[in-house]
Design a protein around this nucleic acid. Structure first.
Lengths: 172, 172
DNA sequence: GTCACTATATATAAGGG
DNA sequence: TCCCTTATATATAGTGA
C-alpha cells in the first residue's frame, strides 16, 4: 500500500526495515483495536523484538487490568488429560505425607497448565508495550504466587521433619 | 474501508458482526504475516472468542515448532528481582535437605517466571488457530515438564524419608 | 531517526447470488 | 452463511525537510 508494491521478503536495509516496522506495527495495533471495538472480542497484540528482552504487550490499561483479574481467577479446570498420574513416580509407602505433597504437586500442575497457554504465546514477536504500572501489577501478582508456593513447600518440608520427629523422638 | 465509513463501536447486528469479524480477522492475520516477513519479527496473533474456550493461535507450523524450541531453551534468567527470598519462609534448622528443596523451589520459580509472561497474554482475545499437530506437541512438552517436576518432588520426598531412616534406623 | 505528504496498494462495507 | 464484486476508506512506500 504505497507508491509501489513491495515484495514479501525480509527488508535487508536496516533503517528501512525499522521504519516499516514502526509504521506497520502502528497499523496492526489500530486494526486490532478496531476489531476489538467493532466485534467485541478482546484483541491483544504482542511483539518480542530481537532487541528488547521484555515482550511488548498492547491493549489499554483497562485491558491489562482485566487480564490480571482473569488470570487470578483462572481455575484449575481444563487439566483433564494433563493431570499427571502420580502413582508412577511416587515411592511406595509414604502415605502420611502424601496428601500434602500432592497438594504441592497439584499446585505445580496448575502452574504447568497455565504454562501451557504460555507455550502458545511465548517465543512470538508481539505488538506493543505495556504501561509501567500495569507491568508492576503483573509482577506483583506473580510475586504473590511465588510467595504462596514457596511458603507451602517450606511448610511441607517442615511438617515432614516434624512427623519424623514424632516417630522417633517425640517433641520435647 | 468499504462502501462507507463505519462508526467505531460494537456492531449490534449478530450476522454483520460475525461477518466483519471473519473478514477483519483475516486481514489482521495477513498484516501480521507481512510484518513478520518484511521485518523479520516473529509475529503471532491470538483470539479468545467468547464462544470457544480454547484460545486460537496463529503462525505457521514452522512457527509453532520454533515456539516450542524457544520455550524449552528458556533459561532461568530474568529472574532477578523476582527471585524469592527463601529465608523468610524456611523453618530454621533443616539444613540437610535444603538444597534439594531449594532446587524444587527454584524450579517452581522458573515456572512462575514464565507464568509472568503468560500474564501478559492470557485473558486476551487473540487471532487464530493452531494446527492439531502443533497443539499436540505443545501438550506433550508440558506433559514432559510435569513429569519431570513430579518425579523430582517424589524423589525429594523419598530422599527425605531415607535421610530420616539413616538418622534413626540404618537401612537394613 | 522522525515527521509530513501523497500516490498507490490494500482492506473491506455493502450488495447480490 | 459463504462467496463474489465493487465502490470507498485506509494503510503505507517512497520522498523530502
Amino acid at each position: 500500500m504505497g507508491r509501489r508494491k513491495v515484495r514479501l521478503e525480509l527488508i535487508t536495509n536496516d533503517s528501512v526495515r525499522k521504519t516499516t516496522f514502526r509504521k506497520r506495527k502502528g497499523g496492526l495495533l489500530k486494526k486490532a483495536s478496531e476489531l476489538k471495538t467493532l466485534c467485541g472480542v478482546d484483541t491483544c497484540a504482542i511483539i518480542y523484538t530481537a532487541n528488547d528482552v521484555e515482550p511488548h504487550v498492547w491493549p489499554s490499561p483497562e485491558d491489562a487490568q482485566r487480564v490480571l483479574e482473569r488470570f487470578q481467577s483462572l481455575p484449575s479446570k481444563k487439566q483433564g488429560k494433563h493431570m499427571l498420574n502420580h502413582e508412577d513416580y511416587r515411592p511406595k509407602d509414604v502415605s502420611m505425607l502424601e496428601l500434602k505433597l500432592e497438594n504441592g504437586i497439584k499446585r505445580n500442575q496448575d502452574l504447568e497448565m497455565e504454562l501451557l497457554l504460555l507455550d502458545h504465546l511465548s517465543g512470538k514477536n508481539v505488538v506493543d508495550l505495556i504501561k509501567d504500572d500495569e507491568m508492576k501489577m503483573l509482577y506483583q501478582s506473580v510475586d504473590d504466587k511465588i510467595r504462596d508456593l514457596t511458603l507451602q513447600m517450606a511448610n511441607l518440608k517442615a511438617s515432614e521433619v516434624e512427623e519424623d520427629a514424632y516417630s522417633t523422638a517425640p517433641a520435647n
